[in-house]
Every structure is written in structure tokens, then in C-alpha cells.
């Protein structure tokens, strides 16, 4: 059974139709990457999966069960969402933030039990943030902050984790650190990772399968080798891109070509 299954998903954000009949299957335990140009509906797809946006029509199923049948709390135990940006108006400490990930398991007034503290501690150890657990969020660097949000998501003990450009503002070393973290978590716990990314090479290195999107529809779904072809990329991004093999071997590498912007209007 697939972890996530979409059928004919349509979605509107204000006036604009952002998803136009998207159908996808994501397997359990898969690292699945959503790529595509700006405005292609990647983030909308992720938000629809987290039920932050209500779809206009179409079906979403998690493990065969329709999204509407889950209560918010049930959904939060199944799916963790890591947003692109973190709100920092009220500076909680790292430990307090991570512990919030337990809230789908608590009652209305519920206080955390010993078990919740242990899970939060494990999550902080796993993401290597435990040595600054008492620091406030506004005192952290971008990479540290991202690891804290991921620790919070891990603390939710989800089956599926949704990541919205988790490495967008990080230096290469921190990018790899975050990605390795997610990959290790996926392998150890057998969870499903769905990630939105603009970094095609990162997508090729970590993704088991990718979906390439444009204007709210699927252009191509498959392994990095089948999606990253000269033709498809040029057509979708409107920019010349060369594809060869990464020096690491076995994964394609994409290099955008300067000064060769292609004028392609649909």
C-alpha cells in the first residue's frame, strides 16, 4: 500500500488555481522530492498534504485512508510538517520548542509525562541540538534553527515527514548535514519523506523518486535518471541545463548554462 496517494487533486489559493488535477503515489519509506520552477505548486502541494489548505476537489489518502477521516490530532501524529520559515516573535528555548512536537499526544490541558521528555531528548540528540537546549531560538544560526525544527518534527513521531526547502538558506556543509539527518531518520525509522526543493543536485543525490511539476500539473515522475533529461528540464524551467554524471557516480548532475535562457511560453 502506498503511504500517500493523490488523485485528481485541484487546489485554489485565492484567485489562482495552483494545483490542476495532480495524481501521485508515494511509497512507504521512500525519499520523495518535489521539484519545479517557482509558482509550479510545490509548496501548495505540501500544504495540502498537511491539511493547511483545503483542496477544491480530488482525493488524498494516507495509507489507504482518506485525509478527511483523520482528526487534526490524528493527522498530527501521522504527518509532521517542517515549514519554510519559522516564526520567532516570541523566543522559546530550544527544549521548549522541541517539546511542542509532543502536543498531538497530550490532552487539552495535558502536561508532558516523563516519556515525552525522553522522546524530546532523543530527538534533540539525534539532530545534535541537545548541547544548546537552553538557548533561545533567536540566538541560533540558520543551520541550528533548522535542526531544531526538524527535532520538533521528529518529536511528533510521524510516519510521514513533509519538508519545505529545508536547506534553502544554508551553506553547503549544513545542507549536507540536514539531508544526511533526514536520510538517516528515514532509514532507521522506515518513515516516508516528502521534500520540496529547488536544489536539483540535492534532489538527485537523496531522492529515490522525484516529481517534476509545472503550473500545477505533473510533468514527469520517476527516478532521478528518468526525470533529469536535457529535454524535460529545458522545457520545464525554460533554461538550458546540461546533465551528466556526478563525480560521486550513479546519480545525474545538473548544470544550468549561463546566458542561455530559453524563451518558452507554454
Amino acid at each position: 500500500m502506498s503511504a500517500v496517494s493523490l488523485q485528481g487533486l485541484c487546489c485554489r489559493y485565492g484567485e489562482k488555481q495552483v494545483l490542476k488535477g495532480l495524481s501521485l503515489e508515494v511509497n512507504k519509506g521512500e525519499f520523495f522530492v518535489v521539484i519545479g520552477p517557482n509558482g509550479s505548486g510545490k509548496t501548495s502541494l505540501l500544504k495540502t498534504l498537511a491539511r493547511l489548505i483545503t483542496p477544491e476537489s480530488g482525493q488524498i489518502r494516507f495509507f489507504g485512508r482518506s485525509l478527511d477521516e483523520y482528526s487534526r490530532k490524528e493527522l498530527a501524529r501521522l504527518v509532521a510538517y517542517v515549514p519554510q520559515q519559522m516564526v520567532l516573535d516570541f523566543p522559546f528555548t530550544v527544549a521548549e520548542t522541541v517539546l511542542m512536537g509532543r502536543s498531538p499526544y497530550l490532552g487539552l490541558v495535558g502536561l508532558e509525562q516523563q516519556k515525552d521528555y525522553e522522546i524530546a531528548e532523543q530527538a534533540m540528540e539525534f539532530t545534535d541540538v541537545i548541547h544548546f537546549a537552553d538557548r533561545r531560538l533567536d540566538q541560533l544560526s540558520g543551520g541550528e534553527l533548522q535542526r531544531v525544527i526538524i527535532a520538533r518534527a521528529i518529536c511528533q513521531e510521524p510516519e510521514i515527514i513533509l519538508l519545505d526547502e529545508p536547506t534553502a538558506s544554508l551553506d553547503p556543509a549544513h545542507q549536507i548535514k540536514i539531508m544526511d539527518l533526514m536520510e538517516r531518520f528515514r532509514k532507521e525509522k522506515g518513515i516516508t519523506v516528502i521534500m520540496v526543493s529547488h536544489d536539483l543536485n540535492m534532489a538527485a543525490m537523496y531522492g529515490n523518486r522525484l516529481v517534476l511539476m509545472k503550473n500545477g500539473i505533473e510533468v514527469k515522475t520517476g527516478t532521478p535518471e528518468t526525470v533529469f533529461t536535457y529535454d524535460l528540464l529545458e522545457k520545464t524551467y525554460g533554461c538550458l541545463m546540461l546533465v551528466d554524471e556526478s563525480p560521486l557516480g550513479q546519480v545525474p548532475r545538473v548544470v544550468p548554462v549561463p546566458g542561455r535562457f530559453v524563451n518558452c511560453r507554454k
Binding site: K47, A50, R72, D89, M100, S103, P104
Partner: peptide
Amino acid sequence: NLLLMGRDAAMAMGI
């Protein structure tokens, strides 16, 4: 507390 983390984050944590 969760609302302080932003609307999306609060919803995604079951609120």
C-alpha cells in the same frame, strides 16, 4: 503556545 509558532505550524501540530 503553539499559535506563537505561526498558524501553519500550530495546525500541523494538531491545533
